[in-house]
Design a protein around this nucleic acid. Structure first.
Lengths: 337, 337
DNA sequence: TATGTAATAGTAAACGATTACTATAAGCAC
DNA sequence: GTGCTTATAGTAATCGTTTACTATTACATA
């Protein structure tokens, strides 16, 4: 039974009115005789009618779908942002779909094309490449966008994120004040705003304190755990001399770093000090808690949702939102003074 | 510019053929003259045509949307499963939308209704209540379902999960073998299969070893961190005597438990031993690593995806899949012998 | 009485794709 | 020439809604 869905047509036939009237009852946007209305509502109840949103969407040229496109949706940082956005948008009748680009610009481009085909209503995105991202495709079709975490300067798209330069600067300075001079950095992807700015912050802090950055301690990470693990493992395998401290440019790479150090029995902070931009899950239970800065992802998600909704509802207020991040003091930094 | 999307009609007009022909070129499912075909393809290129999937979906009565409905999509356990499903389905042209019920049956019912309206193609679900879940609504509309993690017995729906009874039994027995007799349990929701079976496993292990279960050490959790934290905090505030060991019935509650114990300066395992069904993120870095069983969520996700796809593609093979879980030995259990 | 307007409801055209039918022409066998 | 098949392509219906038009009635106003 019930092989075919009940449609407005069925309701119309059942009650002897036109589909237009049924639609009007459902949307309550046009005067309908009270008795007719009740008859229709009764039929809807009896036949267990449920609207077909695909049809509705075709007619309205919308999809009630919003996407969040990030490098890796398994990253707790993005998860937390996404969940918050989802909660807010769900209230307004939107569903969120999450897309991971795995930092590949090709995949990101494919995803954007697919989203356009799906008539996506809005997109929150952390572009995997600040130059090559095909955001113009979205702009051309007037799809509202919010940049999350990663910025793109030339396009005037609202942005929600943190002050990456400052985060890196402060953490590096913290190390310096503890007496560290031989400091390395595990960088993020340098074709993203976050990667660039964090490295810049690191270098500036070094420079301002008259320290030079040793090239061999600049580890080229890509924001992912594996790469950080491998780059550092390679370095350690060659028995090169370690810096006394290392700045890790995101949470995933901090994990990769810790795993590599663990494997070589290098202790934190006895043998090397670590600071991290971004926290690891459950770090409060760690034997060595990593000193880090923590972003308020719930707040960020909320702000992203607000910016998305304000664009969807044409209440344009397109300002950028830079969220302050918190300093978390752990015990991963050795006092050298 | 480009306010309106380019449609097949535009391509048809531009090339002087009918929309039927354009459709045939695009789908390559009907003979089209080679020159006509090239002309159409050229127009598609030039006008930058992209298909409208909403229209396609209306016509085909599908949505290319699959949903995963769980208590809390922020739970790393579900995230990992979801990500795996997403990856597999994306390859086949489906998008995954994630829905959190927050363990509320009302919310779950609303979600199911919404999904039906969206013409959802398939649903993976961990029902928030094994009795009251409105899966019949989905079944009535012939929407393929896969039960994830939580089972429902009477409906014959394929299931992917673990042997919850055995997991609880083994962990409890492990404690007993270490000499523990005063053992408590932080239960999950008892209106779910996982909650019920884990408690049953715990009780059976106790019984089989001639131990009695003290009611005051049965803590009524609901699988969520907060509830576990609060129930235990309340207990500790009343200065009641502790069991020597506690079985926690999922990862989130283990966290709540640890937080509550921390706050009261109760040490693991010196003051109380803890075992957990399910692992916490990054537990490899914990000062006290919790002895637990770990589910292979990637494998589970893969199996769920397979079952979903096989139903979507009518290759019915509806067997249940029970995944073996791994025993992780930590240092959270004190030897009492 | 003539006229304006509000309530009520139906008709039919959209939205953008797919496809069952139908039609034409060409090629081939007899 | 007749009949059959195949390649090719158009027409128009369809998926399930919404809505611009149009139409009718009732009632108030001048």
């Amino acid at each position: 039974m019930d092989l075919k869905n009940v449609t407005m047509k069925d309701i119309a036939r059942y009650t002897g009115v036109s589909t237009a009237t049924v639609s009007r009852v459902l949307n309550d946007n046009y005067p309908v005789n009270i008795e007719t209305k009740q008859k229709v509502l009764k039929a809807i109840e009896e036949l267990n009618y449920e609207p077909n949103l695909v049809a509705k969407n075709l007619r309205s040229r919308k999809s009630n779908l919003v996407a969040i496109v990030v490098a890796d949706i398994k990253n707790p940082y993005y998860i937390s942002i996404a969940k918050e956005i989802d909660d807010y948008l769900f209230e307004e009748g939107y569903n969120l779909i999450t897309c991971s680009t795995d930092e590949s610009i090709e995949k990101e481009t494919d995803i954007i094309r697919l989203l356009l085909s799906k008539q996506i209503d809005a997109v929150a995105i952390a572009p995997s490449d600040s130059e090559k991202s095909k955001l113009t495709e979205l702009i051309k079709k007037h799809v509202p966008i919010v940049l999350v975490d990663r910025k793109i300067d030339d396009l005037s798209i609202p942005f929600v994120g943190t002050n990456n330069f400052k985060e890196a600067y402060n953490l590096t300075e913290y190390l310096i004040k503890k007496g560290h001079e031989k400091i390395g950095v595990m960088t993020g992807k340098l074709n993203t705003s976050t990667g660039k700015e964090r490295l810049k912050g690191f270098k500036m802090a070094m420079e301002n304190h008259g320290l030079t950055v040793d090239e061999k301690w600049i580890f080229n990470g890509d924001f992912e755990e594996i790469q950080a693990y491998e780059v550092l493992s390679q370095f350690l395998k060659n028995k090169q001399d370690l810096p006394t401290a290392l700045v890790s440019c995101n949470n995933l790479m901090t994990k990769g770093t810790m795993l590599a150090l663990n494997e070589h029995s290098i202790r934190i902070p006895e043998d090397i000090s670590i600071v991290s931009i971004g926290v690891m899950e459950n770090h409060e239970f760690f034997s060595t808690k990593i000193t880090s800065v923590e972003q308020d992802t719930s707040f960020m998600g909320k702000k992203v949702a607000e910016l998305l909704l304000s664009q969807l509802q044409n209440k344009q207020k397109l300002k950028n939102i830079v969220v302050e991040s918190a300093f978390i003091k752990g015990n991963s930094v050795k006092e050298l003074n």
